[in-house]
């Protein structure tokens, strides 16, 4: 008896505060990398300017649109579950996961082309370029790589939430898990909002 009471205990606000605290550590993790980018860019602006030309704006732009749209479907799924619309919530989560995978496929082709052109850290083609361009590509692989890992983690988390919603463990009355998973997903979008101009736009 007592265990069943304990297992039903939940703290909605506490769970959300916990999620935000975790997101703060993520902000500071990526913040450190943004700081590194800012300082190196300030030290070698011309080389960074040259290196940006190696990246394809169209790929970066399409990935930006993919992530913005996935954030929309994630947000819609939270509203849907709160109205008790289980199938709309499942639709929202499903589309978000598909868009996350589309983002990663795009990223795969992008990295494949760079590596095919011999532009990977320590490669002869890259080390023959200036120090600044090497720093740019080092930061590019580190920051988009770490972000890519977050996309993968977010998609995996949303898959788990999908199963929970389908089994109605996550429902109109208890939706913390979906809401917090979506908070994580929006943070992944938020980080890309800064990565996109820094690597593809500022030329």
């Amino acid at each position: 008896m007592s265990t069943s009471v304990a297992s039903h205990h939940s703290d909605y606000t506490g769970a959300k505060i916990g999620m935000w605290l975790f997101l703060f550590t993520e902000i500071l993790l990526f913040g450190g990398l943004f700081l590194l980018y800012a300082v190196y860019r300030a030290k070698s602006p011309a080389e960074f300017h040259e290196a940006t030309k190696h990246l394809h704006l169209a790929l970066g732009l399409s990935n930006t649109l993919i992530l913005l749209t996935s954030s929309l479907t994630a947000a819609l799924s939270v509203s849907a579950i709160r109205r008790g619309q289980k199938y709309w919530a499942l639709w929202g989560i499903g589309v978000t996961v598909v868009l996350a995978l589309a983002f990663l496929v795009n990223k795969y082709f992008e990295w494949k082309e760079h590596i095919g052109n011999g532009m990977f850290p320590g490669s002869p083609a890259l080390t023959s370029l200036s120090h600044g361009e090497n720093l740019f590509f080092g930061l590019y692989y580190t920051m988009t790589g770490l972000h890519g890992v977050h996309v993968l983690a977010g998609a995996a988390l949303l898959c788990v939430v999908y199963v929970f919603v389908n089994r109605e463990k996550v429902n109109q009355h208890s939706y913390s898990l979906l809401e917090n998973a979506c908070l994580f997903w929006h943070l992944v979008d938020l980080i890309w909002i800064y990565l996109f101009p820094l690597f593809y736009l500022v030329t």
């Binding site: 939940s10 909605y12 606000t13 947000a75 509203s79 109205r83």
Partner: peptide, 10 residues
């Protein structure tokens, strides 16, 4: 269970 005070966002 505690809930959000605001209704679901449109």
């Amino acid at each position: 269970m505690e809930h959000d005070t605001h209704p679901a966002v449109r």
